Simulated assay, not measured.
Amino acid sequence: MIGRLNGVLLEKLPPQVVVDVQGVGYEVDVPMTTYYQLPALGEKVVLFIHQVVREDAHLLFGFASRTERETFRQLIKVTGIGARIALAILSGMSADELAQAIATEDLKRLSAVPGIGKKTAERLVLELRGKLATGATLTMPGGLPFAAAQADSRSDILNALMALGYSEKEAQAAMKTLPADVDVSEGIRLALKGLAKG
Rank of each mutant, 00 (worst) to 15 (best):
T139Y: 08
L132E: 01
V53F: 13
V113P: 14
L60A: 11
F146Q: 11
S111P: 11
L38H: 12
V52G: 10
P31G: 00
I116F: 13
E122I: 08
G23C: 11
L124T: 07
Y26G: 05
R129G: 10
A148D: 13
G115Y: 07
V78S: 08
F63L: 02
L9W: 11
G135R: 06
P14N: 01
G115V: 01
Q100P: 00
L138T: 04
L90F: 00
I89S: 05
D56Q: 13
H50K: 05
S91A: 05
K77E: 11
I49W: 05
L90V: 00
M140C: 00
L144F: 09
A151D: 14
A99W: 08
L38P: 01
I116H: 08
R66K: 13
V113K: 10
L60E: 08
V8T: 15
V28M: 09
V18D: 07
V53L: 14
G80Q: 12
L110M: 09
R66I: 12
T137F: 07
V45M: 09
Y26D: 02
T34Q: 04
A40V: 07
A148M: 06
G135W: 03
G143D: 10
L60N: 02
L10M: 11
L144T: 15
A136K: 08
L110G: 10
V19L: 02
V53R: 04
D56R: 12
T79G: 13
A64V: 15
A95I: 07
A112H: 12
V52Y: 10
R73H: 03
L144D: 03
R129E: 09
G23S: 11
K12T: 12
F72Y: 13
G117C: 09
D96P: 06
L98Y: 05
G3R: 00
F48C: 04
I76D: 08
Q51D: 06
L126M: 13
I49S: 02
Y36H: 02
A101W: 10
G3V: 06
F48A: 03
S91K: 01
A121T: 10
V18M: 08
G7A: 06
I116C: 12
G142W: 12
M32D: 04
V8M: 12
L60S: 04
A121Q: 04
R84C: 01
E55Q: 10
P141A: 06
E27I: 06
P141W: 08
G25M: 01
R54K: 15
K119L: 10
A103M: 02
A136M: 05
T67S: 02
A149E: 10
P114V: 09
M140L: 15
L75S: 10
G25H: 04
E43P: 02
V19M: 02
F48Y: 14
L41A: 02
H50S: 11
A149W: 07
E105F: 04
P145L: 07
M32A: 15
L126H: 04
L87Q: 11
A149I: 06
P31I: 06
V45Q: 14
K118R: 15
E43S: 15
L13S: 14
T67L: 09
A88R: 01
P31V: 03
A112F: 11
I81R: 07
L47S: 05
V78Y: 03
L47R: 06
L10P: 00
D106C: 09
